[in-house]
Design a protein around this nucleic acid. Structure first.
Length: 572
RNA sequence: UGGGGAGUCGUCCAAUGGUAGGACAUGCGGCUCUGGACCGUAGAAUCGGGGUUCGAAUCCCUGCUCCCCAGCCA
């Protein structure tokens, strides 16, 4: 029930067996002999936790590498010491492994290339293709122009090479304060692509780096670092999201102007968006910092650690990413698709168990006081190899409060006064009397059972429509159950122009049930174990169980509930 | 009024000049000791306008809408 980290060789294509455009490009490149092997990379910046959107990229990069017999590198894109922290790099490695992927020996940090990057920068200076600009940030910004007006050249743009070399060297040596100078590429201040208007390549930052410590006080920018890191690692296909389309011009310019060992190609695809959640780092950060959720691994978070704690199996995430496909169109995937992938996986793999979330006592008046029977229950009807277990049954039982209606509506097949239902695996019982407290609340049901129906079938062939789950009162184990629902109450929380997204949070995204009764087997349940609570949903043991003294279960997702749909429709 | 991208069922993805197909969702039916799962079935789309062609989602022209870009972030 816990996950083995094994390769994720799922189907190559999500829909209809067709290859996505990236795989088509790769196949063409391979067929044309442009590469002998495929090398991709997943390059997170260690300044936040990985989420389901990253999973799409991870599955794509590791997936194509696996399919075409190549390899995929894990590379920390750590060029900005101000934002990045060691805490995140460990979390990222853990999450990628948990998802089921293996980078083998190919674990890298952009920071490990700082020396080579510096040498490349010097080469650019020598070639007259980069210069030290001594203006402040505001001047540089003002000179950049706008989308419709060209920029203005810096007065330092034509500094002699020797002077640039000297200054750049002294930048590295720490002679200047932050912001005193930057190294810029000398491209074209009138370029229609603003990113090509002499982009900054290096900035001074007297800040310790999580990996290189105090070795550097100048740090390279993304546009200079990423393409060269790819080239150094001999990446063949550098897959990134759509917002980097404009950056491809610099990517190519840098590689075209430097003697690089390989010529990677950047290809952009649409990032994943999901309904009823947010996936931007900034917004996820706010949810955590403002306390709207309990942390990065809150089971409502779309982070991989959140999904893990929620009980979502990595195989389900992989299957989901497969079905989502890869294209260039901005899109928002229905979270129902994720839920479907989760149910699909869990249905096949999780053991069934009986748990009563909102207990109502049933006393079987004609059942012997001291008798305890045990019934063989199927662990997983989808998996005959999962076997059976024995569950104790006695005169007093817990059933689900919502499985009884004093005044049953049409199509309600469950228990009601005078009505007969089946207790799963056990007996048919009939409700004889409803006991209420002074407030009129139903507190107990007095029932009778038919001894001839042992096992759940009537010898006379009479049919019952309803089957209820139950837990024997004297054998029940107390448990806490946390019912998680969608984090937001609207499908597109980011699209609302009037209201801040935190105002759209679903107030019922978490309901804690303290007095649940579960079958005895679950007394020893360990963190991470996943179960189906029959008729209720899929649940996963929370890590806090270990210190709580009783099991705590997180609801991963409900079972599809057609009765709830019928009832909702009858109401409207 | 710059440059770079994208528009196909409710949603996501296919169809690469030759019957617009799949998945999820939804409706209906079947089966069922989980109102689960499963099985069957139905409805549902090519952004608009021109053109080329025997034939256009696909090629051409034109219009419209949406996304990205003016960090010393990635």
């Amino acid at each position: 029930m816990t996950d083995q980290q094994q390769g994720a060789g799922d189907a190559a294509a999500g829909s209809g067996g067709a290859k996505d455009f990236i795989r088509q490009i790769i196949e063409e490149d391979l067929a044309a002999g442009r590469h002998e092997t495929v090398v991709t990379r997943f390059p997170p910046e260690p300044n936040g936790y990985l989420h389901i959107g990253h999973a799409k990229s991870i599955c794509l990069n590791f997936g194509v590498a696996e399919e075409y017999g190549g390899r995929c590198h894990l590379r920390m894109d750590d060029t900005n010491p101000i934002r990045e922290e060691e805490e995140y790099v460990e979390a990222i490695r853990r999450d990628v492994r948990w998802l089921g992927f293996d980078w083998g020996e190919h674990y890298y940090h952009a920071a490990d290339y700082f020396e080579q990057l510096y040498e490349y920068a010097v080469m650019l200076v020598r070639r007259g293709l980069a210069y030290v600009d001594s203006q402040g940030q505001d001047e540089i910004r003002a000179q950049r122009g706008t989308p419709t007006e060209p920029g203005v050249e810096s007065p330092y743009r034509n500094r002699p090479v020797a002077e640039n070399l000297d200054l750049f060297e002294r930048m590295r040596a720490g002679e200047f304060p932050d912001g005193a100078h930057v190294l810029r590429a000398k491209i074209d201040m009138a370029h229609p692509n603003i990113l090509m208007r002499d982009p900054v390549l290096y900035r001074i930052r007297h800040v310790a780096h999580h990996r290189t410590g105090d070795a550097w006080c100048i740090y390279p920018m993304y546009d200079f670092t990423h393409c060269l890191s790819d080239a150094i690692e001999r990446v063949t296909h550098s897959l990134c999201t759509l917002e980097f389309e404009n950056n491809r011009a610099i990517y190519d310019w840098v590689l075209d102007n430097l003697p690089v060992p390989a010529r990677p190609r950047q290809i952009e695809f649409a990032r994943l968006n999901l309904t009823y959640t947010v996936l931007s780092k900034r917004k996820l950060m706010r949810l955590v910092e403002e306390g709207h959720v309990a942390g990065w691994d809150d089971p409502r978070m779309p982070t991989l650690c959140g999904l893990r704690r929620r009980g979502c199996p990595p195989a389900a995430i992989r299957a989901f990413c497969d079905r989502v496909g890869v294209a260039k169109r901005n899109s928002i995937v229905d979270v129902g698709l994720l839920e479907h992938a989760v149910r699909d996986e869990l249905n096949r793999t999780s053991p069934r168990v009986m748990a009563v979330l909102d207990p109502l006592k049933v006393v079987i008046e004609n059942y012997p006081e001291d008798l305890v029977e045990e019934f063989d229950c199927v662990n997983n009807p989808e998996d005959p190899g999962a076997g059976t277990r024995r569950v104790p049954f006695s005169r007093e039982l817990w059933i689900e409060r919502e499985d009884f209606r004093e005044d049953p509506p049409r199509k309600f097949f469950r228990l009601a006064p005078g009505r007969e239902v089946r207790l799963r695996y056990a007996y048919l019982i009939t409700c004889r009397e409803v006991v209420k407290d002074d407030a009129g609340r139903v507190v107990e049901l007095r029932c009778t059972y038919d001894p001839a129906t042992r096992g759940g079938d009537a010898p006379d062939g009479r049919k019952v429509r309803g089957t209820l789950h139950w837990v024997s009162v004297p054998h029940a184990v107390d448990a806490e159950v946390r019912l998680y629902d969608r984090l937001f109450s609207v499908p597109h929380p980011e699209e609302d122009r009037e209201r801040d997204f935190v105002e759209l949070l679903n107030p019922d995204s978490l309901r804690v049930l303290e007095r649940c009764k579960v079958e005895p087997l679950l007394a020893g349940a360990g963190p991470g174990e996943r179960y189906q609570f029959e008729r209720k949903g899929y649940f996963c043991v929370d890590p806090e169980t270990e210190s709580a003294g009783r099991p705590i279960f997180n609801r991963t997702v409900t079972l599809r509930d057609s009765w709830a749909r019928i009832e909702a429709r009858m109401r409207s």
